[in-house]
């Protein structure tokens, strides 16, 4: 039986604003399948975003939704989770939103290991504002503000999350639609900060300026470059150079932030 997305979509809010071929829609569908698989209660679930094309996602879905300011989603989400730890808190946003302007909030949410699931849609570009380079735009690539090629080195979002202390980190691509929901679901079930990085496609502002004349070209690249973690472990650094390692990259158990704070409350009250 096909999945009933209507169960989670707000009536009357489609069509969405995304361009034809935009990868964000694939991530939206994966997210809803994951939420369904985890049987999250709509009333008890908050979905928080920043600003950007990806960050428009919460407007379409029937939960407690919060479209914040550029880069600030993780910090708003932290307030929600701290104040009401019984709520499920998910964050969705773009690469620019999450690791450029919001980078500080992102790494500190990882460090705290607060129980939330952060789905970051990495399309290597600032889509919404017309294709300026982001910290994830590959070096040498074209963006509207790198007319001579991008001189900047690239952030690896997943490695950044691991380094900052996130206790669940996974990566996939918009080509691997069937994997996206599984990884997000694992992230939701994980107690602590879960980051799921999905590489996706902005044909309008990134693809057309670079070597990807069509969405199919981009999808082909994701298909060819993706290497599952298990296989990647047997490959050399050089072999992995132009590859995208997919799957669960990191998982550990560490005290969760709200539980830690519950200990603070206990101590404060016992004195």
């Amino acid at each position: 039986m096909s999945f009933d997305y209507d169960k989670y979509l707000r009536p009357g809010k489609l069509p969405h604003i995304w361009c034809p071929g935009c990868g964000h829609g694939i991530i939206l569908k994966g997210l809803l399948r994951a939420i369904d698989a985890c049987e999250l209660n709509k009333d008890n679930t908050a979905i928080v975003s920043g600003i950007g094309c990806a960050s428009r996602l919460p407007g379409y879905v029937d939960f407690n939704t919060l479209h914040t300011a550029h880069g600030r989603a993780a910090a708003f989400a932290t307030g929600i989770k701290m104040a009401k730890p019984e709520m499920n808190v998910l964050v969705v946003g773009g690469d620019g939103d999450g690791v450029a302007i919001g980078g500080n909030h992102f790494i500190h949410a990882c460090r705290r290991n607060i129980d939330m699931t952060y789905v970051i849609c990495n399309n290597f570009i600032y889509g919404m504002t017309g294709g300026q380079f982001s910290p994830c735009t590959p070096t040498g690539d074209r963006a509207s503000t790198t007319p001579y090629g991008n001189p900047d080195p690239v952030f690896d979002i997943s490695q950044l999350a691991i380094g900052a202390g996130a206790t669940f980190v996974a990566r996939s691509t918009s080509f691997h639609a069937a994997q996206i929901d599984k990884l997000i679901a694992e992230g939701i079930r994980h107690k602590g900060m879960a980051v799921i990085e999905i590489l996706d496609d902005c044909p309008t502002t990134y693809g057309r300026r670079n070597k990807f004349r069509s969405v199919v070209d981009m999808m082909k690249r994701f298909k060819e470059q993706a290497v599952p973690v298990a296989k990647a472990e047997k490959m050399s650094k050089e072999e992995l150079d132009s590859k995208i390692v997919t799957g669960i990259l990191h998982r550990e158990e560490r005290p969760e932030y709200c539980e830690q704070y519950a200990q603070v409350v206990k101590t404060a009250r016992s004195l």
Partner: peptide, 29 residues
Amino acid sequence: LPKNGGKFIQMEDEIAAIASVLGASLTGA
């Protein structure tokens, strides 16, 4: 605050601080 059923958090900067306040307020606090 922890003695009074409340929550205190020191955030990473002032922007995050007010963001957390707004998130918390939306839950009714």
